Computed example of a mutant assay.
Amino acid sequence: MLVRVRAFAQDLGFSAVGVAGVDLSSAEPGLLAWLSNGFHGSMDYMAAHGLRRARPAELVPGTVSVLTARVDYLPRGTPDGWQAVEFERLERPAEGTVSLYARGRDYHKVVRGRLQRLAERIAAEIGPFGHRAFTDSAPVLEAELATRSGQGWRGKHTLVLAREGGSMFFLGEIYVDLALPATPAAEPHCGSCQACLDICPTRAIVAPYRLDARRCISYLTIEHAGPIPEALRPLLGNRIYGCDDCQLACPWNKYAGRSVLPDFDARTGLADEALTTYLGWSEEEFLRRTEGGPIRRIGHERWLRNVAVAAGNALAQLPEGDPARGPLRQALAAHAGHPSELVREHVRWALERDGAGV
């Protein structure tokens, strides 16, 4: 049956599928330790769901097995040497950098829809069965299920790594009431490499396989709703939504696959765009530009917060006389009286950075 499922999955754009059992009890101590250390930050839902994440049959009664799937998300036209291209973006302080996965359509909708279609294809083959599909949308230990089902191993940055696909992929799951044989787990291949730990701008990877989300730029620019801690702001550079550094530095990502889906192609205006342009987006334009994409979920207020931090960092980095400095100051000053104190405070901080690095 798994051979047929893999064929169906490939037709739908998945790069790999596997099967995991539902006994994840050995993962519970690690989950509890992570929560007790407060590494989840303000993601209170992580603590609220607790061990339910490690107990699939409690989340969906009747679950006997979990089908796992990978979907590559590098845009179809991604060139060879793409990691160097992305690193170069970080060296252009007057432009904003958006994480690669967020430049196209919202993966939640894309992947979940295709998982549902996969379940329908299976049902057409074997008859009706109980199932529920998830992708980063419920209390699910996605990485644990992925590693147990052979999608890859857990890298030292805590992401799942595959020898033939790096880590530039989304994960999805279908909880099923079918007893399916588990696929073998993958062997780890990080060895002594710690490129991801060394490159993390905020040292959020506090030890191999341990991430303190409170320091992670992806958390700070996406999940975190309040002020970004001042000590961390200069470390964000020009990253305005997410951070790819640990993946860019990973040697295995030279094997990262390009998506076969047009959904993840970069939208116009979400790569190589000036920070002044982003600061100029009204709420209406922000909503229009981000419609159907993952960035929209943070809202215009947090968007301006993030871009203001990047603009402040640019003012601190750009040399006196650089033609980008004046427009950056003007774009920031335009928000000095913004209705949101969150925006005003980050704008004030950014303007105070003017000349800090000169």
Rank of each mutant, 00 (worst) to 15 (best):
R6L: 11
A9L: 09
A9K: 13
Q10H: 11
Q10I: 00
L12S: 04
S15P: 11
A16W: 08
V17L: 14
G21F: 14
D23R: 13
P29D: 00
G30R: 10
G30Q: 08
G30E: 00
G30C: 08
L31H: 13
L32H: 07
A33Y: 03
W34F: 11
L35P: 01
M43N: 08
D44Q: 12
Y45Q: 14
A47E: 04
A48P: 01
H49D: 10
G50V: 05
G50D: 06
A54T: 00
P56Q: 09
L59G: 03
L67Q: 10
D72Y: 03
Y73C: 08
L74G: 03
W82D: 00
A84Y: 06
A84C: 08
V85R: 15
F87V: 04
R89N: 03
R92C: 05
A94P: 04
G96S: 02
T97W: 09
L100F: 00
R105P: 00
D106R: 14
H108E: 04
K109C: 02
R112E: 04
R117A: 13
E125W: 10
G127M: 04
G127R: 08
P128V: 00
F129P: 09
F129A: 13
G130H: 08
F134Y: 03
P139S: 11
P139C: 14
V140G: 05
L141K: 05
A143F: 10
A143E: 12
L145E: 00
A146P: 14
A146W: 02
T147F: 09
Q151I: 02
H157Y: 06
T158D: 04
L159K: 07
F169R: 15
F169N: 14
F170D: 06
E173C: 13
E173S: 15
I174R: 13
D177Q: 12
D177Y: 07
P181N: 13
T183D: 09
P184K: 11
C193H: 01
I199D: 01
C200E: 03
A207E: 05
P208E: 03
R210E: 03
L211T: 02
L220D: 02
I222D: 04
A225I: 01
I228G: 09
E230R: 14
L232H: 05
R233Q: 05
N238Q: 10
R239I: 02
Y241V: 09
Y241W: 12
Q247K: 09
A249K: 09
P251Q: 11
Y255E: 14
A256I: 03
A256H: 09
R258F: 03
L261F: 01
F264E: 01
R267H: 11
G269L: 01
A271M: 02
D272S: 13
G280H: 12
E284C: 08
E284I: 05
R289G: 06
R297L: 12
R297C: 04
G299L: 07
V309S: 13
A314C: 09
A314H: 04
L318A: 06
L318Q: 08
P323W: 04
Q330R: 13
A331H: 11
A331I: 06
L332H: 02
H335Y: 06
S340R: 12
V343M: 05
V347P: 11
D354R: 15
G355A: 05
A356F: 01
V358K: 10
V358A: 10
